[in-house]
Amino acid sequence: MITFDGVTKRYADGTVAVDDLSLEVPDGAITVFVGPSGCGKTTSLRMINRMIDPTEGRVLLDGKDVTTVDPATLRRGIGYVIQQAGLFPHRRIVDNIATVPFLLGWDKKKARDRAMELLERVGLDPKMARRYPYQLSGGQQQRVGVARALAADPPVLLMDEPFSAVDPIVRASLQEELLRLQSELHKTIVFVTHDIDEAVKLGDTVAVLRVGGKLAQVAAPADLLSDPADDFVREFLGRDRGIRRLGFVPAKNLALDPAPEGVTPEGHGTFNPARDSLRAALDAALLSPDGLAVAVDDDGRVLGVVGQAALVGAARG
């Protein structure tokens, strides 16, 4: 568990980057720091691995003040992913991934084997191992950055706008990949972004910060969307938060009507009640000419249908 205890960062010129931040980052979950430029989200993140030290207050990692730990030792136990990946251009991909294991004095073969394992784990072709960073696309480099951060199997992962520099399609696939990895690894992840959509998509908890380094609200994404604490958070979330919130409501509670004669998945929007959200179900209904969303199971068998009126009723909840 990471705890921010009354943390303030003030610079010599008087600027306050982080103002009296108190926050608990739970283990095994993704906590997202989100906010506009100058809200102190990156500064807060960097105080966890002592890239920056707080002016006042304490950052605790498992109950221990991080400033009492040697920075290099501390950082070797915390994965760190940044926007441009920051790969070592002079080293092959495999050795980039194995950087921290090498630092920790692992046996060369063991470190490289671990790197190869991670390369596949983040969805890259093992052939990439012998390449240099310049030979990879931005999205691939970012995957290597994630693999490198995971190399020594640290319990904590810090990610500073890791997907901001890649195009939307690649970003979406990197986000999916991160969620898939997290479902296997259960790391304690602190993720910084300025993109609220990314925050609600990835976060188990979202902390919204405002300019001047003040914490505006900490909540689960669904709660944040349904219940913004103040005007700043409401505005930051944007206008369509009603519909976005539906993405966090499972569709499994919808009452299904029997499918009328002749209604098939073809020519209709479909959703899977076991996995999809209310938003997906509503979207399916809107895509169907007769306004019926067709519920299907994992094997594509029709379970029933829901009409638009029923969906809107469910959405009002």
């Binding site: 890239m51 070797r76 760190y80 940044i82 990946a85 920051g86 790969l87 251009p89 630092l103």
Partner: peptide, 22 residues
């Protein structure tokens, strides 16, 4: 590249290691 420097420190390289290895 400042990102290279940042990443090197962030992974736990010490000052001289950052200089000589990165």
């Amino acid at each position: 590249d400042p990102d290279l420097r940042d990443a090197a420190y962030g992974m736990g390289l010490r000052g001289s290691q950052v200089l000589f290895r990165a």
